[in-house]
Simulated scan of single mutants.
Amino acid sequence: MANTDVLTTINACVIIPTYNNAKTLSRVIDGVLTYTSHLIVVNDGSTDATNHVLSRYATLTRIDIPRNRGKGNALREGFREARAQRFDYAITLDSDGQHFPDDIPLFVDDIEENGLALLIGDRNMNQEGIPGKSSFGNRFSNFWFRFETGIALSDTQSGFRLYPLREVCDIRFYTTKFEFEIEVIVKAAWRNIPIRNVPIRVLYDPDERISHFRPFRDFTRISILNTWLVLVALLYIRPRDYFRTFRKKGFKRFFLEDLLHSADPPLKKSLSVALGVLIGLSPFWGFQTVIVLFLAWIFRLNKLIAFAFSNVSIPPLIPFIVYACLKIGTFVLGESTTVSSFNWRQFDTYRPYIQQHLTEYVVGSFVLGIFAAAVAGALSYVLLNTQSGRNVQKTT
């Protein structure tokens, strides 16, 4: 048992989920007990000698799950028990011997120095002995995590982690197997919980390590989960975050900080303005935010600027925009139809009118969007260049 509990300063415990790793489990437990006596082991339906190994440790908290239900479920059971014991943090590590309990103090030091966060052990995936499928899987996971959250991490798959229990236990989860470790960090990032990497060592011993990862079945689950998370990120999380940022700043602060004084060059900012205006006036009602953020990401433009200007179609202006689109579309197509009967003051009257003249409206909206985007982009480019020149003169 530990003489000095290094986890006391942050009120943390250690959780070890295990399934048929009796060969290495005792070594892992002994290593953890060197640093803390607050240990929870979740036996996820093991059928080997795990029960015999655990029977030698009378002081640890043991959770036995009768039938194997997956690592994610085991972690969630461990979190519930840790919260019941009133811990603020839980450090998790695998029972297959790949993690070094000697790295536990690194997680404690990071929390003490930098404050609350969800910490993920950063393995050196380029060292000798790392399986190629593990290295590829980590790069794959890192890419999608960055796409879904905007946060770049060098390791998102390591099971050696520190979780802030109160914050994590407030999140609703749906997965119960390996993919849980992806779901939890993505949803934590969406809750604005800081997520950081902590450098750790790792050991892949082919003579000892037993992996329960089933490539086809588990990779399929992970792919389905990432597909869902990407859709949620594009349809809800990104628009929510940009709207909150824009609302928090207000138009004046946004104009001064993001449009005039951001680090982006004038051309990039003016193209972002043009993109926002173009999509905002295009006939993609209900999908404008998703489209503008996706295109801004594709073309590496300023997403906040593009999002802000895509809101050109605000409710008070919609009747005038629709009326202008119908007029332009009628003119471009050379139709004899007039829009004199169009009542732009009442939505219930111009909605059926759009349905009757959909072609004119669509053509007119694209023409208006392209023209307005060109004008807005050109004007913003001139304004931003002028402002940039003034800033240069002030510095000289």
Results as ranks from 00 to 15, higher is better:
Ala22Trp: 12
Cys13Val: 11
Thr50Ser: 09
Thr36Phe: 08
Ile10Ala: 04
Asn3Gln: 13
Asn21Cys: 14
Val14Lys: 07
Leu33His: 05
Lys23Ala: 15
Leu60Met: 11
Gly45Pro: 05
Ile29Tyr: 13
Leu39Lys: 00
Val41Thr: 05
Thr8Cys: 04
Val41Lys: 00
Thr36His: 05
Ala2Tyr: 06
Ile10Gly: 02
Asn51His: 06
Arg62Tyr: 09
Ala12Thr: 09
Ser37Met: 05
Gly45Asp: 11
Ile15Thr: 06
Val53Glu: 00
Val42Arg: 02
Ile15Gln: 05
Gly31Glu: 13
Asn20Gly: 12
Leu7His: 05
Thr47Phe: 04
Ala49Leu: 04
Arg56Ile: 04
Leu39Asp: 13
Leu33Gly: 08
Ile16Leu: 14
Thr34Ile: 13
Arg62Gly: 02
Leu33Trp: 11
Ile29Phe: 13
Val32Pro: 10
His38Trp: 03
Leu33Cys: 10
Leu25Cys: 15
Leu54Ser: 07
Arg27Glu: 10
Pro17Gln: 08
Ala22Gly: 15
Ser26Val: 07
Asn3Tyr: 06
Ala22Val: 12
Ala58Asn: 06
Ile16Met: 10
Lys23Glu: 15
Val42Cys: 06
Val14Leu: 11
Ile15Arg: 09
Arg62Asp: 02
Val6Pro: 09
His52Thr: 06
Asn51Val: 00
Cys13Asp: 08
Ile29Cys: 11
Asn3Lys: 12
Cys13Trp: 05
Leu33Pro: 03
Val41Pro: 05
Asn11His: 08
Ala12Glu: 07
His52Gly: 00
Thr24Trp: 10
Ser26Pro: 00
Ser37Val: 01
Ile40Cys: 04
Thr4Arg: 10
Thr59Gly: 01
Thr59Ala: 03
Ser55Cys: 03
Asn20Ile: 12
Val28Ile: 15
Val41His: 01
Leu7Tyr: 02
Thr18Gly: 10
Ile40Asp: 09
Ser55Asp: 12
Tyr19Cys: 10
Thr36Trp: 01
Asn11Gly: 03
